[in-house]
């Protein structure tokens, strides 16, 4: 596996997860969360600055038999966690095409 291949898998999985209704965004890293929080404060009333948020921050992919994909999502309130995680699991698995993959989905927060 080259780095490019893995990066492509990560990007595809992240895009698939973000398409699911109820996913607010993928869990950013600590720096991203601090940055978004500080930016929101500086830009009063305009909400978190997501322009700089890495869209694939909450996705980790490892090659193996099968491949594994860990997806950490932040849930949008009003959507049922179980239903959303199931949909994300299905979408991420589909993003791997014919390649067998074990998908783990975790709700890390809610907004």
């Amino acid at each position: 596996m080259t780095g490019d291949e893995r990066e492509q898998r990560v990007a595809a999985a992240a895009a698939a997860a973000l398409q699911v209704q109820g996913v607010a965004f993928l869990k950013p890293g600590l720096a991203g969360r601090l940055r978004a929080s500080a930016s929101a404060l500086a830009r009063t009333g305009r909400g978190p600055d997501r322009r700089r948020t890495d869209p694939a921050a909450g996705v980790r992919v490892r090659q193996g038999t099968p491949w594994t994909a860990e997806v950490h999502i932040v849930l949008q309130r009003g959507h049922r966690a179980l239903d959303v995680t199931r949909a994300v699991r299905s979408a991420v698995a589909d993003s791997f095409g014919e390649t067998p993959v074990r998908v783990t989905v975790t709700v890390s927060g809610m907004v």
């Binding site: 849930l75 966690a81 179980l82 995680t85 199931r86 783990t104 709700v107």
Partner: peptide, 12 residues
């Protein structure tokens, strides 16, 4: 299914 929710999120 391997689906999870973190305790802090559920506690909210």
């Amino acid at each position: 299914e391997d689906l999870w929710i973190m305790e802090a999120a559920a506690a909210k």
